[in-house]
Design a protein around this nucleic acid. Structure first.
Lengths: 214, 214
DNA sequence: AACACTCTACGTACAAATACCTATTGCGCA
DNA sequence: TGCGCAATAGGTATTTGTACGTAGAGTGTT
């Protein structure tokens, strides 16, 4: 790492951010580091300071890591984004990689792995946590057959979200100003797409796919 | 803080643990710190090294923070436990406080709050993140009226668990070797006790109350 | 002995969800 | 221009869930 390396750290958990900031600042090499707490703040920062490497959390308020990564890559396509996720969720890493991330680490990675990831992306290489690699390989074949969140349309996600809130089709129809029969139809399609056979399975699917938070 | 203060850090996320370890080690006062990655490791450590203060994560593999806290308090009741949680979940903090925790911080607390919490528990006081306090106050009145996990009988929990797995009453009846009408009745009672009005709400309740894991 | 509680079970009625049809509109892509 | 797809909506039938009754057998407590 050269002394001019500019590194941004984007995470909404203050303690985690402070700790990682400290670790990064106490290596042999001293990159220039700026830390912010969500995607929007990162974009604001980018207006007059462009990071070479961004360590990006995914689940954040205001603007999440996926949206933020897309925006960053649009304006500064040479930026190297390293995703930092709490969970090894299949949808997350595929979406982050779509969004332009070059590396993907779990938050229970060691700091050494963070350093390895930084070196890797600087050399134009990719880097993944062992757990992520394992998960990718395990899902390689399943992927093609199984529907994911992105297979649900926007409207379907909206319907599913309201189902999770405990609303009946009738109630959902009323708040969306459409016929109950339309909601029936959407629900039927969602069951089919998610390969669920009842409401309980739908709710579990929604939570696993981050359509609904408990 | 005196120089002899002994502090244990229990968290399964390596990066978070390493970062916080670093921060704690670079204060003016230098406590003696040992870091482990789950409750069982903490208990093993306690065998020949008793911490004065324990910074304890809740969600951990092998042994979670609640179980670990109970064990620690049984053997070393003077230990001050500070809980570190990702979410402001109502059940978590009540269970952790039952288990003997004196302070409760969220992981998006600042390091300053960690220091304040440490000072507070050393003086025998309690300490809570502002978000936690807010949540506690908001739930103060609700608490007494609302049933919690313990209000469901063992059988009801079993039924609810199977509902979350996506089984119908008929299917549940078959695997439990009872009549479908009995499962109907259990389900009705569960709806009443949890103040839910349909399956979706039941599943959300079950997850919030750790009866079912996604 | 009286009481409370759990688990069991049934009757009845109605509401909601599931399943399999068809069909129109509008929008974007090849 | 034609094609696919999302969103809308209805018909009809069946299954499942929700709601309010009752009630016996077993267990443990006062």
């Amino acid at each position: 790492m050269t002394e001019s390396l500019k590194l941004a750290l984007v995470d909404d958990h203050d303690l985690f951010r402070e700790g990682l900031y400290f670790l990064l600042n106490n290596q042999n090499s001293k990159p220039e580091i700026k830390a912010v707490s969500n995607g929007q703040e990162l974009l604001d920062l980018q207006a007059n300071w462009q990071a070479d490497i961004i360590l990006m959390d995914i689940e954040m308020p205001v603007m999440n890591g996926i949206e933020a990564s897309k925006e960053v890559m649009k304006k500064y396509p040479n930026t190297k984004i390293i995703a930092l996720s709490m969970h090894a969720n299949e949808n997350y890493y595929s979406e982050m990689i779509d969004a332009g991330a070059k590396a993907f680490l779990l938050k229970n990675s060691s700091f050494e792995e963070v350093q390895q990831a930084i070196e890797a992306v600087m050399e134009g290489k990719n880097f993944f946590s062992p757990e992520i690699l394992e998960s990718i390989i395990k899902n390689l074949n399943r992927k093609k057959n199984q529907p994911s969140k992105s297979d649900l349309t926007q409207r379907e996600v909206e319907i599913l979200y309201n189902i999770c809130k405990g609303l009946s089709n009738q109630e959902i129809a009323e708040i969306l100003f459409i016929s109950k029969r339309t909601v029936d139809k959407h629900r039927e399609n969602i069951l089919l797409k998610t390969q669920s056979k009842n409401t309980a399975a739908l709710v579990i699917y929604a939570i696993k796919n981050h359509i609904f938070e408990v």
